[in-house]
Amino acid sequence: MTLPSLSLSLQFGALADAALHRAALPRHTVARCIRHALETDAEITVRIVDAEEGQALNRDYRGKDYATNVLTFDYATDPLVMADLVLCAPVVAREAAELKKPLAEHYAHLLVHGTLHAQGWDHETSEADAEAMEARETAILAGLGQPNPYAA
């Protein structure tokens, strides 16, 4: 299987525990997760941010005044996907701990999730769309050797 090409920029904001997040997100792993979720070639920037930056972006662009795990800013889908994925390190770390999952595993799920959003997938439009997106994420993650993120 030939995967789509990817031009990737991986950025880390000012994080108190940057080493932990850098270790969970080696560039080759980030690229692998995204490429497996792509349906076409892409130019994607992944930025790992602190809670303050994550909250400001969520508030300014979505009108929700809290830091969320992943934000997707999609700019184009044809002829190639162009997007920014912003992952909030403290939120991702907290969720991984609550779910009793390795940090790298949770990041893999959110990278796939955000990449699907960049291609027009949406889980907030209907229950059927949510189920379809979850099924697609689960299949992609299985192909990456990752467990089902929605399994109890």
Score class of each variant (00 low, 15 high):
Thr2Pro: 15
Leu3Gly: 07
Ser5Gln: 14
Ser5Gly: 09
Ser5Cys: 06
Leu8Val: 04
Leu10Arg: 03
Gly13Ala: 07
Gly13Asp: 02
Ala16Lys: 14
Ala19Trp: 09
Leu25Ser: 03
Val30Arg: 00
Val30Ala: 00
Ala31Arg: 01
Cys33Lys: 00
Ile34His: 06
Ile34Met: 01
His36Trp: 07
His36Ile: 09
His36Ser: 11
Leu38Val: 03
Thr45Asp: 04
Val46Arg: 07
Ile48Val: 14
Val49Asp: 06
Val49His: 06
Asp50Ala: 01
Glu52Tyr: 10
Glu52Val: 14
Gly54Gln: 03
Gln55Lys: 13
Asn58Met: 13
Arg59Cys: 12
Tyr61Asn: 12
Tyr61Asp: 12
Gly63Thr: 00
Lys64Gly: 01
Tyr66Leu: 14
Tyr66Lys: 15
Ala67Lys: 04
Thr68Gly: 14
Asn69Met: 08
Leu71Asp: 04
Leu71Glu: 03
Thr72Asp: 02
Asp74Met: 15
Asp74Lys: 11
Tyr75Lys: 09
Thr77Val: 07
Thr77Phe: 01
Pro79Cys: 09
Leu80Pro: 04
Val81Trp: 05
Ala83Ser: 05
Ala83Arg: 08
Ala83Trp: 04
Asp84Ala: 06
Val86Glu: 08
Cys88Asn: 04
Ala93Met: 02
Glu95Gln: 15
Glu95Val: 13
Glu95Arg: 12
Leu99Ala: 08
Lys100Met: 04
Lys101Pro: 03
Lys101Trp: 11
Lys101Asn: 12
Pro102Leu: 12
Pro102Ile: 00
Leu103His: 03
Glu105Leu: 03
Tyr107Gly: 03
Tyr107Leu: 05
His113Ser: 15
His113Leu: 13
His113Trp: 12
Gly114Lys: 02
Gly114Arg: 06
Thr115Ile: 11
Leu116Asp: 02
Leu116Gln: 07
Leu116His: 06
Gly120Tyr: 04
Gly120Asp: 00
Trp121Lys: 00
His123Glu: 15
Glu124Gln: 10
Glu124Gly: 10
Thr125Pro: 00
Thr125Gln: 10
Ala128Tyr: 09
Ala128Cys: 13
Asp129Cys: 12
Ala130Tyr: 11
Glu131Cys: 10
Met133Trp: 05
Glu134Tyr: 11
Arg136Gln: 07
Thr138Ser: 01
Gly145Tyr: 14
Gly145Ala: 14
Pro147Met: 13
Asn148Ile: 08
